[in-house]
Computed example of a mutant assay.
Amino acid sequence: MAVNARTEKFQHIEVFDKPALFTNGRIARDTVPEGWYCYDIRGSDDDPGALCYMEENVVVNHAGSVLMPEKLVMPKSGRLDVRDELGFLDEGNMTLREFCEAHQLSYPTENMKFHIRPARPEEAGLFYTPHPEEDKRLGTVGHVRMDFGRSGNEFWHTWWSRGPEELNSPAFKLELQEVVDTLRESVLKNRFAMERFCYEHGGKISGGWTQNYGYIVETAHYRYCLRCNPSPGDYNCYCTAYDLDVQRQNMAQDKPLVGRVTYANGDAQEFTDAEAFLKCVREELPYRPTTGFRYEVLTDDPSVRRQVDDIIFDLYGEEAPCRQEDHEPRPEQGMTFGGM
């Protein structure tokens, strides 16, 4: 599994007398900030863990990756011998932000406007066409079918509407175009880029005659579910769009939400099952300082609220951290969540 350049704990090193960061993991290239450079290090056939050569990309015998603010000049061979050029500085783990502070560099801004995350196993159904009634309940707008052609570098696409025409609004069309244009810089760049993205980010989902990968982009009003199949000879991608406002209204009428959780990286999850919500709070709250985990209790059920308070007290006692709901008004009973 690839690591995120912005959140990984690196080792501080010098390579060719230049400051850099090292990790044994494989750095996901789409997380490398603009103006920064990432290289892989190849190990030997006898000892794959030995740090021998630095290259743009290493598939076999990958021994680590290097992140640095300066570009290295690669010879025609495409590799640099680093066996006598790597110096590890004994300073403990270091994040990208800490590296920038240590070397008086500006911390780079985020590359992507839209956050993309791998799908969870239970979300696999969002990537395939269900019964029309389920499409209606989920607020499905439609899907884009995409293909990279025979060469793997083309980009053919077709839109298929699956919901009421009013959902396919000008505002939606504009945002969909922005999302696809942004993803064209990474996972949708070409077939090879998609294959590499899937290899680095995981996201395997069930279904299909070959292995498919699922990724989700969620904005304020829409959820985009990207089903990727980097194999030639078939359509390479389907992007299904859901209207979250419609979905929340339908869910509120069907089964009210119990709670919602969010993370600093943009991930969010809503619960209609009280036990699942409580389990999530219990498991994720201890990691709040590193994940940015926050929760909202959206039910007036006193037993659920009491159990959440018990979880907080068991973990923190009188030093309980502030909850998101402590700073925001609770929704009125009977309110549809699409109107929040």
Rank of each mutant, 00 (worst) to 15 (best):
V66C: 04
N61T: 06
H103V: 01
M74A: 08
L72H: 05
V82N: 11
M94A: 05
N93T: 15
L72A: 09
L86C: 08
V60I: 15
S65Y: 04
V73S: 15
D90E: 11
D84P: 00
G78L: 00
M74E: 12
E70L: 08
V59S: 11
P75K: 11
E91F: 10
D84I: 01
D84Y: 13
E98G: 05
E91R: 10
S106A: 07
Q104E: 12
Q104D: 14
M74H: 05
L89I: 15
L105S: 02
Y107C: 02
L96C: 04
S65K: 05
L72I: 13
G64H: 13
M94W: 11
L80A: 02
D84N: 13
V59T: 13
T95L: 02
P69Q: 03
E101C: 00
C100W: 00
M74V: 09
S77T: 15
M74R: 05
P69C: 01
H103M: 00
A63D: 09
E91N: 09
L72G: 01
T95Q: 09
F88K: 14
K71N: 06
L105A: 11
H62I: 11
D81G: 02
H103F: 14
P69H: 02
D81R: 14
G92S: 08
A102F: 02
V66K: 05
F88C: 08
E110P: 03
M74D: 07
Q104C: 05
L80G: 06
S106E: 15
L72T: 07
T95P: 03
S65H: 01
A63P: 12
S77C: 13
A63K: 09
V73R: 06
R79W: 10
G87D: 04
K76R: 12
R79D: 09
V73L: 14
T109K: 12
N61F: 09
N93K: 14
L80F: 12
Q104I: 12
V60P: 00
Y107A: 04
P75T: 06
G87Y: 13
A63W: 04
E91Y: 09
V73H: 06
P69M: 02
Y107H: 10
E85N: 13
L67A: 03
T109L: 14
L96A: 01
K76D: 11
C100H: 00
L72E: 03
S77G: 10
M94K: 09
D81T: 01
S106D: 13
L96I: 02
A102M: 13
E70V: 14
E70P: 05
M68Q: 10
M74I: 08
Q104K: 15
K76T: 08
T95M: 00
M94F: 01
L80M: 11
F99L: 04
G87T: 13
S106Y: 03
L72C: 07
R79C: 07
D90G: 00
L72Q: 06
P108M: 07
K76F: 10
A102L: 13
N93I: 07
Q104A: 04
P108Q: 01
G92C: 07
V60F: 08
D81A: 00
